[in-house]
């Protein structure tokens, strides 16, 4: 069955959907590029010339660069850690034999359904006790490895790494960790990359816990945006200049890695 090329009936709704998807971003930039009072009186669909003025005011209002740096440090550390530790555990679950492997893996999967976010009260008390509140460690450490990551890597490694290869490495006298390093790691690169992208985005967006445990002087990007918005007099141009500036890095990442993200979601769907 050769399909014919789709026509306007397909492209029309798709274009409409994507325009709808992109519009809020454009709107944000639109408001950010005008003077607030003037824009309220005379809304327009064309960008104004005030963006850099508003951006400058954002830099005066919140520690923008610090927040950006903090978010990169937090998300970067969490991503590297989740990818490495999940690969290690996934490799063990997929390719190594040990007592209790089945039940332990079932346990990992079961924890996927546990809303651990609801444990924030004691977590906060613990962080305060250790003097960690306000530090980046408080938002990094709880996220160093995830059940999703372990399960995802386990599913991938089970198919991608031949048992014979593991066996051969063992016969050559490789220790477990070297077997992982030389046989496991090289094979998991595509899955690790996807896990990395997802972890980075999840961490970048994390809000409730950072809002509780961090403060306005040492925030992540999301917390800084919240502070920007929570002034008593809301200046839309100022706030949306902030959101625009915070969105640009994410959009760049998306343009570079979008293809992989799409592939990752679709591949994960088939496995799940």
């Amino acid at each position: 069955m050769r399909e014919k090329r789709p026509g306007l009936m397909v492209y029309g709704p798709l274009i409409a959907f994507i325009l709808g998807s992109a519009f809020p971003f454009y709107w944000s930039f639109l408001v950010a590029s005008h003077d607030d009072a003037e824009f309220t009186a005379n809304p327009s669909l064309l960008p104004g010339g005030n963006f850099f003025v508003n951006a400058g005011r954002v830099l005066d209002s919140i520690p923008f660069w610090k927040a950006l740096g903090n978010s990169i440090i937090v998300s970067g550390t969490v991503t590297v850690s989740v990818v490495v530790l999940s690969s290690l555990a996934g490799f063990a679950f997929a390719k190594l034999r040990f007592r209790g492997r089945g039940p332990l893996l079932v346990f990992v999967v079961a924890t996927l359904a546990v809303p651990t976010q609801l444990g924030i009260v004691p977590l906060y008390m613990a962080m305060a006790e250790f003097g960690w509140s306000g530090t980046l460690g408080a938002v990094i450490v709880p996220n160093l490895v995830t059940a999703f990551g372990v399960f995802w890597m386990r599913q991938y490694i089970a198919d991608a790494v031949p048992d014979e290869l593991v066996e051969a490495a063992r016969m050559d006298g490789c220790s477990m960790i070297r077997t992982f390093w030389h046989v496991g790691l090289p094979a998991v690169r595509p899955a690790a990359a996807m896990l990395g992208v997802f972890t980075f985005m999840t961490s970048w967006n994390d809000f409730l816990w950072p809002l509780i445990v961090l403060n306005a002087e040492n925030p992540t990007m999301q917390v800084a945006l919240e502070k920007l918005q929570s002034g008593y007099y809301v200046d839309n141009s100022l706030v949306l200049a902030g959101t625009t500036m915070a969105t640009v890095p994410v959009l760049i990442v998306f343009l570079v890695l979008g293809r992989q993200i799409v592939a990752g979601i679709m591949q994960g769907a088939v496995k799940g």
Binding site: E3, P6, P24, T247
Partner: peptide, 30 residues
């Protein structure tokens, strides 16, 4: 369907997913 440039369309519909939640909510509140 047999779209031309299908990856581009797929990326297009995924665009909202990557933007940060706080930023988006601020935009929608506006």
């Amino acid at each position: 369907t047999a779209l031309r440039a299908r990856t581009a369309w797929r990326m297009g519909v995924l665009l909202p997913y990557v933007a940060s939640l706080v930023a988006l909510t601020i935009i929608f509140a506006n």
